[in-house]
Write a protein that binds this DNA or RNA. Structure first.
Lengths: 184, 184
DNA sequence: TCGATGACAACAGATGCTGTCATCACCGCA
DNA sequence: TGCGGTGATGACAGCATCTGTTGTCATCGA
């Protein structure tokens, strides 16, 4: 394989997204992805632990959010800490076009939707541990993190459909919606 | 299979739980489960679409909750509807001993944890659709359902650790905790 | 009694994923 | 210029999951 080509991982990710879009996830084999990227099937598994992960490896969202939590003002309430961290999440997103293609592919396949869910749950777990380091009790930390992830889903869903709004606006809007809903 | 024997599906479920406990999920093959239940590997797949599902097939939780939502008083707020439905969820749970064994097996394996998450997400989706039938806008319905599922996780986690408390008490407690957390 | 139905076994095959070893390009260094 | 080390890759073998298909047997209803 020529060395002047860009890195193998990026080629695999692009080839996989392309193939998943045209053929569907299940109908494309790992050998096809690897072949389109100029590698062998075995080499694919050197870059990604399994076939699904090729769509999820690039994100640095978790590290970004955790860093924001760790540098948040000490007197902030846990919920507010996560909310303000979330408001800056668009800093690590790739282009909206890429996100939309990815979302469509994921939504079209149950196995990928599963992986997406567990990735979000991983983020929730990391956020919960970050809260624990601020002194929040573990059970409550996980609870608040789960709720904030729900807010994130609500906000990003609107964000993908409405390019005009900023993510932090939509986060605040979802939080207000939640307060409204839970108030008797 | 003789009629006086218990059904094949139940035998497969029990054999699988047993084997997963002693050998771990990955190290037990479908052929082993089927063999322990007196069936062939091929027959296993007539009862369950895949190996993981043998641990998740029995639950009628979703149908129970949806039924509760559909018979709820029309003037209740969406959040309250789901909360009161959740409070009756213990009516469809099996024995605590069975639940604990199951939880341990699931927690010990990432693939099973994934499936557990997606099952909860399925419940959230069903609850959201039930809310839509009451006139709630789809995006908000899903949002509220996700939040209520977070409440459910918080409550059941406490419930498994504390046999004394009732589930509906713990649900109300988690809801109060949420109101407290989101109030500025 | 006969035909339909359903449960099951048996077999073949595609695919995901892993372990192992050989190979080759490149690197620093003498 | 040549040498050895290192890391990436290819080649190959193998196991397990899951699917499609077919044949057999028991059961059930007309």
């Amino acid at each position: 394989m020529p060395r002047w080509e860009s890195d193998a991982q990026g080629r695999l990710e692009r080839a996989a997204l392309e193939l998943f879009e045209t053929q569907g996830f299940e109908r494309t084999t790992v050998a096809q992805i690897a072949g389109a990227a100029g590698l062998t099937e075995r080499s694919f598994y050197r870059y990604f632990p399994d076939k699904r992960e090729v769509l999820f490896a690039g994100s640095e969202l978790e590290a970004h959010l955790v860093a924001r939590v760790e540098t948040a003002a000490p007197d902030l309430m846990p919920f507010e800490v996560l909310l303000t961290a979330l408001g800056t999440a668009d800093e690590v997103f790739r282009s909206r076009e890429f996100l939309l293609r990815r979302v469509k592919v994921i939504a079209a396949n149950p196995a990928l939707a599963e992986r997406d869910l567990i990735k979000l749950a991983d983020v929730a777990g990391a956020l919960a541990r970050a809260l624990e380091r601020r002194g929040v009790e573990p059970g409550e930390a996980r609870f608040i993190a789960d709720v904030v992830i729900a807010i994130a889903r609500r906000a990003t869903s609107r964000w993908l459909a409405d390019p005009a709004a900023t993510l932090s606006e939509l986060i605040a809007q979802a939080a207000a919606e939640l307060r409204e809903a839970v108030t008797p």
